[in-house]
Amino acid sequence: MYAPAPPTPARASRIRQRVTPYALLLLPCALVILALGYPMARQLVMSFQEFGMAQQFGQPPEWVGLDNYLSILSDSYFWVVTGRTLIFTAGAAGATMIIGVGLAVLMQRVSSAVRVTLQLTLIFAWATPVIAAVAIWRLMVDHRHGVVNDVLAGIGLSGFQGFHWLQANTFTFLLVGAVVVIWASTPLVALATYAALTQVDDEVLEAAQLDGADLARTLWHVVLPIIKPVLILLAILQVIWDLRVFPQIYSLQQGAGSTSETNLLGTYIYHTGVGGGSYGMASALAMIMLLLLIILTWRYVRILSRQGDLT
C-alpha cells in the first residue's frame, strides 16, 4: 500500500482553480432551489392530486392523474378567464410599448431641461409601490369623489357623473386595471428605449439623411434594427408581467362587484387555491399559466440561450 504522491503546488492550484467556481455557486444555487426549484417540482406533483375534505384532517392527498387538467380544460369559465387574460395582456403590453417607444423618440427631440423633467416624472411613477398606485387610482376613479368622473363630466360627458368604473362591467374594470399597469410600466420602456437610442451613432443617422431618407424611413430602416434586441426584451418582459398580473387586479376587486366577472388568471389561481383550498386544481392552473408563458416567450428564451453561449 502506498500513499499517492503529494500534489505539487502547481497541480494543487490547478485543482483548486477547477473546483472554486462550483464551490462559489453552491450557496446561491441551494437557495434558489429551495425557494423556487423545490416548490416548482412539488407543484407539478400537486397538480396530479386532489385535496378535499379528508386532507384537511391530515389524510395524504389522493392521486387523480390528469383529472385536474381535464376538468380545467373542459370548464368554459377557464377559457373565459384565459381569453380575458390574453386580451388584457395584449392591450396593456401593446399600449405600454407604443407609448414608451413614442416617449423615447420624443425625448430625443426636446431640450434637455424638459427631458430631465419628463424622465424624473417617469421615474416617480415607476418607483411608486404597486399597492399605493392602485390605491391612488381607485380614488381617482371613485364614483363619488373621483377626479376622473369630475373631469369627464366637466367637459360635457355628464353620463359619467357618479359612474362606477369598477362595478359597471368587466370592460371598464379591466380598463382601470390596464391604466394602472400602463402608468407604472411605461417608464421602464421609455427610459430603456431612450438609453438604447442614445447608443445609435450620429454618423449613421447623418449618412442616412444625406442619402435622402426622411425621418420615418430613417427610424424604420436604420434605428429600429439597432435597438431591436432591447425592444424585444422589453416587450417580452411586459408580456410576462401583464399575463401574471395579480396585485392590481386583486386590489381593484375589493372595490368591484363580483370576482368571477373580473378574474384574470393570477386572481383565479389565488381564489381557487388560497380562497377555495383546492390546491390540486390551483397547481394545475398555475402549471397551465407557466406553459402559456413559455409558449409566448419561447423566442426570447432562444435569443437568450444564444447570448449565453457568447458571454
Partner: peptide, 30 residues
C-alpha cells in the same frame, strides 16, 4: 472563471428570472 456548465448557468439565471411568483405561490405556501 471559465468552467464546464457556465453557459448553461447563465441561461438558467435568465430563465429563472422569468418565473412569476403568481405561478408558484400555492406550492410555496404549502
Amino acid at each position: 472563471f471559465r468552467f464546464r456548465g457556465r453557459a448553461a448557468m447563465v441561461v438558467t439565471v435568465l430563465i429563472v428570472q422569468m418565473i412569476p411568483a403568481e405561478a408558484l405561490f400555492i406550492s410555496q405556501y404549502r
